[in-house]
Design a protein around this nucleic acid. Structure first.
Lengths: 240, 240
DNA sequence: CGAACGCTTGAACCCTGTCAACTCAAGTGG
DNA sequence: CCACTTGAGTTGACAGGGTTCAAGCGTTCG
């Protein structure tokens, strides 16, 4: 596991962070300013890092582990996204100095760098390159949620699942076989359906060349699945 | 109608644009650079201004009229948002120099200012204040789509309609009576439901103090409607 | 007046959510 | 080592919400 190996060089995650689009273009000075004010923390699984509705004090950078973004209303709860290393979350709330729209909670043991929101706002006033990176990042985030809405409104749950599987296969650079990266119950919520419904959806996809054994997915007939799923770059491509 | 009054002073819409958060903080010089390169155009209703999937050439500013943002997939189509004066649209695609994720079409006769995307990108490199405004605007847009997702995933269609009515009442600063600003069929699509379903939803809301006659809504029992709708600032507030 | 269109209504069907029972695997403790 | 517990996942039965199809109503507009 990476965390263990890296623990000898306490500053090494700074390099990882520097590698992110968001931080790669800024001046060394600005970057060090941000890092000097930041805290590195290790969290056990199932810890609530930020709470929906509270004020934004830190920009979070997930260096290792995994984090789930959740929202709730009127007693219901839904999974909005899953964050994997290395990436930031709740940038928009940080920028606007506004309350969080989602909660975040660790799924596994996670290492997270906390950068005070105020520092972020101060630094982008000074460093045009950082400002430009923030713009690029926010535009990207925006486009990715718009795609999420299109997925929700234009597709049935079965189609969403089919396209999710194709995306996941591609993301993991897997062959025709790969493991689901999260629980099925969380996946169901992410895709806007109930666990029971997801279970049935998986069964239905058997007819389109998908085999499921536990969390292991095997796509036996990729052409058939694609014909059904009709993936679209304007919904399914992470970048662009 | 404002358009008629203003047509005598052809540059007056520049002042309107200057009043937008996005343009109010930048230097006069930068602003004039943008305006000099821009085109003002009047469009009749039902014109497709931008097409999903095409490359982004202009940042659009709606000065007068109204515009609908649409997305489609696999023969289905959905209303993503309605844009009213004075505001910009497709900022994110402009910034990222990426293909549009939505189409835009005029609902009424509309006056639109087209600012070449390249100019926008050039100017924010130079003008830190403009960059800062873009950041604020994008963060705002991002948060507003996240709210849309929460609305879709956490609420039933009846709850979405109820909250829509409360938001619309508030937006129009209306008393207990106001007109729907768009067709019911478009509203249905916006809320992620069919026209038939919307029709029934309106009937169901009669039980919670809502009267409907044509496009005219009267909220006879605001307390009762709120009790049912449970509006939440983290979903329903436009700002913040 | 008739045509066109948006909206509404009814009926049938299907997808989805709910509730409950059951399986299965992993972990716990006697 | 094995019974017991626990939690996720699956399955079935059922109800409800939502879509679809078809027909009817009401306005507007030529």
């Amino acid at each position: 596991m990476r965390t263990a190996l890296r623990s000898e060089r306490p500053d090494s995650h700074f390099e990882d962070i520097r590698g992110l689009h968001l931080f790669s273009e800024m001046s060394e000075e600005s970057f060090l300013t941000l890092m000097r004010g930041s805290y590195v923390q290790n969290f056990p699984p199932q810890v609530e890092l930020v709470t929906e509705g509270e004020q934004s004090d830190f920009l979070h950078v997930l260096v290792d582990g995994s984090v789930e973004m959740l929202s709730s209303w009127n007693g219901r709860e839904t999974v909005m996204a899953t964050v994997r290393p290395i990436s930031t979350f709740i940038l928009a709330a940080t920028i606007r100095d506004a309350p969080y729209l989602m909660s975040a909670q660790t799924l596994e043991k996670s290492r997270i760098v906390l950068i005070p929101s105020e520092d972020v706002r101060d630094v982008f006033e000074e460093d045009v390159n950082f400002a430009r990176s923030i713009i690029a990042e926010l535009a990207q985030c925006y486009r990715s949620v718009v795609k999420n809405i299109k997925d929700l409104k234009l597709r049935t749950s079965l189609e969403r699942l089919a396209n999710y599987l194709l995306r996941e296969q591609h993301r993991q650079k897997a062959g025709d076989s790969f493991d689901l990266p999260i629980d099925k119950r969380r996946l169901a919520s992410r895709l806007g359906m109930t666990p029971e419904n997801l279970s049935r959806a998986f069964k239905n996809l058997q007819g389109y060349g998908v085999e499921v054994r536990g969390g292991r997915i095997t796509i036996t007939d990729p052409a058939e699945l694609e014909r059904f799923a009709k993936p679209d770059p304007l919904i399914d491509d992470k970048s662009a």
